[in-house]
């Protein structure tokens, strides 16, 4: 028992600092991929709703593929594929080879690409849930498209979309553990290394589970209150 406490402590043999760093990295990767997913997801949703025919089809195929293929496969694609893509690009344009892309970028990009496919569906559904009359009332009063989006669409989409985005965030958080296979020392990877080098897998995987539970519980609470705030006008 004493042994376990030393291993989990902040002392010279303790893994606490590395585990906490892993936690922060997990949060950072998840947040970055969430942001990538939101930006790309909005673009995809726009393409599905208002884009020209070829763009609409591209967005549709993107969604089907990225939601139907294992996340791990997407990570492998970027982990092995991105370096050679960068290399061939730099050869074509005669740039100096920039070297390997940082694992953080590869990881958040691959989780972000998958996240975008799910978020696009959510945004599309959210805009579809707003009654047409809402846009007409705004247009009849001379709102520009931008003003209408900002003042009428966005607040109402936020209400519909926020709980679903909370779900996507939970998936992002858990998918970020898959990035461990690329060697980025986020929480999963750190616990794996610790388990291997101390030969206490139960202890370290257990601690990692507890830390993931803290992260998921805290963020679901945050989304719950965010959802309640954005929904304040819908309680009859």
């Amino acid at each position: 028992m004493m042994d376990d406490l030393t291993l989990l402590g902040f002392g010279p043999d303790g893994w606490a600092p590395l585990l906490l760093k892993g936690c922060l990295l997990t949060l950072a990767v998840s947040a970055t991929s969430m942001a990538i997913g939101t930006v790309l997801g909005v673009l995809l949703a726009w393409a599905r709703l208002k884009g020209p025919g070829w763009l609409r089809r591209t967005a549709l195929v993107y969604g089907v593929v990225l939601r139907g293929v294992p996340e791990l496969l997407v990570i492998l694609l970027l982990y092995f594929g991105l370096p050679s893509l960068i290399l061939s690009l730099s050869e074509t344009f005669g740039w100096e080879a920039p070297g390997l892309p940082p694992p953080f970028l590869v990881g958040s990009l691959s989780v972000g690409l998958v996240s975008a496919a799910y978020q696009a569906e959510i945004f599309r559904g959210g805009v579809g849930a707003i009654p047409r009359g809402q846009f007409e009332a705004a247009r009849a009063m001379g709102f520009s498209d931008l003003l209408c989006f900002h003042r009428i669409v966005l607040p109402q989409v936020a209400r519909v979309v926020l709980p679903a985005l909370g779900n996507v965030w939970q998936f992002n958080l858990k998918d970020s553990a898959l990035i461990a296979v690329t060697g980025l020392s986020e929480l999963m990877r750190t616990s794996l290394v610790a388990a291997g080098s101390t030969r206490h897998p139960f202890l370290f995987f257990g601690v990692a589970m507890a830390l993931y539970l803290v992260l998921t519980t805290l963020s679901s609470t945050a989304f719950h209150y965010g959802g309640r705030y954005s929904n304040r006008w819908d309680r009859g």
Partner: peptide, 12 residues
């Protein structure tokens, strides 16, 4: 200005 059959007030 326009007044609609379905009111179309902005619910938020």
């Amino acid at each position: 200005a326009m007044v609609f059959q379905g009111f179309n007030l902005w619910p938020h």
